Simulated scan of single mutants.
Amino acid sequence: MLTNPTDSWSQLSPRQAIDLQRQLASQVIQRDDLPEIKTVAGVDVGFENRDTARAAVVVLRLADLEPLDYAIARLPVAMPYIPGLLSFRECPAILDALSRLTIRPDLLLCDGQGIAHPRRLGVASHTGLLTGLPAIGVGKSRLTGEHDAVPDRKGAWVPLEDRGEVIGAVLRTRAGVKPLYISPGHRISLATSIEYVMACLTRYRLPETTRWADGVASARGQRWLERLKNLPGAG
């Protein structure tokens, strides 16, 4: 695990943050370096106001996608909103939430980008490097890159390319709905990233990991938390 640098992030200028992203991007592992995956965790961050991030992590059992553990953390943001630097706002709260879990997940599915980022360091890659955990970016929209049309059938995908490099996949998770933008975060390949996202799908557009984490992190959180009340989460 890398030394936690987030306490100093509020001192970074945007230019320094960009330089740090470029340095860290070279450390991202884009091949499979995975343990046996028994648990998967959804990671999402909402903002209660302009200055407070609310991170939620919900751990699911991969075999049946049942929730096992969860945690929530609220922290002041370290940096104002700047496109491309969102991980500097989100990661401190994510790390806090992860530290509160009683079950350490085998794989993270982060709401956001992995290497499908202008500097190849979205929130999933940044979180993966900071924790040492394998991570996948599951983006609801495109941040960078170009792609062809995706066939309208579940499981179909096309490459997402940027400057001649394949940086992710545009994956149709359900017919008739918008695709998701999947990219390796850390310690996982693109093909395996797609495999695990598909394994976490039920009848919805979003994988169950994302649905749970998004629900708990958002203003709708109380309804989702009611379903988790018997778990050992740190709520």
Rank of each mutant, 00 (worst) to 15 (best):
residue 1 M to A: 11
residue 2 L to A: 14
residue 6 T to W: 14
residue 7 D to A: 15
residue 10 S to E: 15
residue 10 S to K: 15
residue 11 Q to M: 12
residue 11 Q to I: 11
residue 12 L to C: 08
residue 15 R to C: 12
residue 16 Q to E: 15
residue 17 A to Y: 09
residue 17 A to V: 06
residue 18 I to W: 15
residue 18 I to N: 10
residue 21 Q to T: 09
residue 27 Q to P: 10
residue 28 V to S: 09
residue 30 Q to S: 14
residue 32 D to Q: 05
residue 36 E to R: 12
residue 37 I to F: 05
residue 38 K to N: 15
residue 40 V to N: 10
residue 40 V to T: 14
residue 43 V to F: 10
residue 43 V to E: 11
residue 44 D to L: 11
residue 45 V to I: 09
residue 48 E to W: 04
residue 49 N to L: 04
residue 51 D to Y: 13
residue 52 T to I: 12
residue 54 R to Q: 12
residue 57 V to G: 10
residue 57 V to K: 10
residue 58 V to A: 13
residue 58 V to Q: 13
residue 59 V to T: 13
residue 59 V to C: 11
residue 59 V to K: 03
residue 63 A to F: 11
residue 65 L to F: 11
residue 66 E to A: 15
residue 67 P to L: 04
residue 70 Y to W: 08
residue 74 R to F: 05
residue 75 L to A: 14
residue 75 L to Q: 15
residue 77 V to P: 00
residue 77 V to F: 08
residue 82 I to T: 13
residue 83 P to R: 05
residue 85 L to K: 01
residue 85 L to I: 06
residue 91 C to Y: 05
residue 91 C to L: 14
residue 92 P to L: 04
residue 93 A to D: 04
residue 93 A to V: 03
residue 96 D to R: 13
residue 96 D to G: 11
residue 98 L to H: 07
residue 98 L to Q: 02
residue 99 S to P: 06
residue 101 L to F: 06
residue 108 L to F: 04
residue 109 L to C: 09
residue 110 C to Q: 06
residue 115 I to N: 04
residue 116 A to L: 02
residue 122 G to Y: 00
residue 129 L to V: 05
residue 130 L to C: 07
residue 131 T to G: 04
residue 131 T to Q: 01
residue 131 T to C: 03
residue 132 G to C: 07
residue 134 P to F: 03
residue 137 G to H: 09
residue 139 G to D: 08
residue 140 K to S: 05
residue 141 S to T: 15
residue 142 R to L: 10
residue 143 L to H: 01
residue 143 L to Q: 02
residue 143 L to V: 06
residue 144 T to S: 06
residue 146 E to A: 04
residue 148 D to A: 14
residue 148 D to N: 08
residue 149 A to R: 12
residue 155 G to N: 10
residue 156 A to R: 07
residue 156 A to H: 07
residue 157 W to L: 14
residue 159 P to H: 05
residue 160 L to T: 02
residue 160 L to W: 04
residue 164 G to M: 02
residue 166 V to G: 02
residue 167 I to P: 01
residue 167 I to D: 03
residue 168 G to W: 02
residue 170 V to S: 01
residue 171 L to I: 07
residue 171 L to N: 00
residue 171 L to S: 00
residue 173 T to Y: 05
residue 175 A to W: 00
residue 177 V to A: 04
residue 177 V to I: 07
residue 178 K to I: 03
residue 180 L to S: 02
residue 180 L to K: 02
residue 180 L to D: 02
residue 181 Y to N: 04
residue 182 I to H: 05
residue 182 I to E: 00
residue 182 I to K: 02
residue 183 S to D: 05
residue 183 S to C: 01
residue 185 G to M: 00
residue 185 G to Q: 00
residue 187 R to N: 05
residue 190 L to R: 09
residue 200 C to W: 10
residue 202 T to D: 10
residue 203 R to F: 13
residue 204 Y to K: 07
residue 205 R to Q: 02
residue 207 P to R: 01
residue 208 E to D: 04
residue 211 R to E: 03
residue 212 W to D: 07
residue 212 W to M: 03
residue 214 D to F: 13
residue 215 G to I: 06
residue 219 A to V: 14
residue 220 R to N: 14
residue 221 G to F: 10
residue 222 Q to G: 12
residue 224 W to M: 12
residue 226 E to M: 10
residue 229 K to Q: 09
residue 234 A to H: 13
residue 235 G to Y: 13
residue 235 G to V: 13
